[in-house]
Design a protein around this nucleic acid. Structure first.
Lengths: 149, 149
DNA sequence: CTTATTAATGAGAAAGATTATCATTTGCAA
DNA sequence: TTGCAAATGATAATCTTTCTCATTAATAAG
């Protein structure tokens, strides 16, 4: 059986640091995730993982993203469409947010410190400590002033 | 067959105004929705609707919330837990947002004009017109300063 | 390096939410 | 009141996610 060889990814290290057993499958999934800068769903993640190591099942991908989410390694997102999507969790720097193109469904990330601060404030004044922010704004590309489409 | 009698609700009127056929079931569901100030899921909505008129099926509730959502009468929300929840769409006044208690799961609504404006701005500067905002913050009730739990 | 222990995995069944199917019923316009 | 397109009810089908359980593999101890 040909073991695929690739270096431990940053996420694989994180996995170990959290005391999670680093199995071959988790190492593969971590590698794929570290390599992704988009927001794949489980199906897509599975496709990418199988490319690297075919000895992996979709059940394990489901299990692993759940495990990683529970350990703060991944964040689950809901952009509509019925399936959860995942991305690497933010570090110490501020959160990032998502703008979704109403027409194409394309997801555009953005950061905004002012927004970070305002949300923090609002929640504090309501007597809570902010745990997570789930924000996505849906927008439609502005029609050019003289365009006609 | 005993037709339930109750007046047309504001949502029923809206339904007619949008040119949608106002069937008995839609009238009932609209009534129940107008009467709710929380965020019921379809199952719960069905329970409430059956109280008013037992001649209604869960399939119709699913169909109706979808229809109402497509027509801007309802808004679908995702608070986790795997099922979609619904609430009456905001009017012209500002949007409202949700704070979710991390421990109890309780949903607390709030409004914030400053937040409205900031989001509007951010999106505009990215070249988009804001269509919808999906924001929920998860928070944990602040521990009292001298508490030890 | 080998062995034991315990957790992880694979394959598929099961669950839970939502949508589709199709015969029957109903709202609404004429 | 009648006709017809659209809506409904009951249930099957679909889709995503979780669970089951026999097998496999990772880690610690020897």
């Amino acid at each position: 059986m040909k073991e695929p060889t690739f270096p431990d990814s940053p996420l694989a290290d994180l996995c170990r640091e959290r005391g999670l057993k680093l199995t071959g499958q988790r190492r593969t999934i971590a590698f794929v995730l570290s390599d992704s800068d988009d927001h794949p769903d489980v199906e897509e993640l599975y496709r990418r993982a199988v490319e690297v190591d075919p000895r992996i099942s979709i059940a394990t991908v489901y299990r692993t993203v759940r495990l990683f989410e529970e350990n703060g390694i991944l964040q689950r997102r809901d952009f509509g469409g019925g399936r959860a999507r995942y991305e690497v969790a933010d570090g110490d720097h501020g959160d990032h947010y998502h703008l979704i193109d109403a027409d194409s469904g394309k997801v555009i990330e953005f950061e905004n410190p002012e927004l970070d601060a305002l949300l923090e404030n609002i929640v504090r004044e309501m007597g809570y400590d902010l745990v997570t922010t789930r924000l996505s704004v849906v927008g439609r590309r502005k029609t050019k002033p003289r365009g006609n489409g």
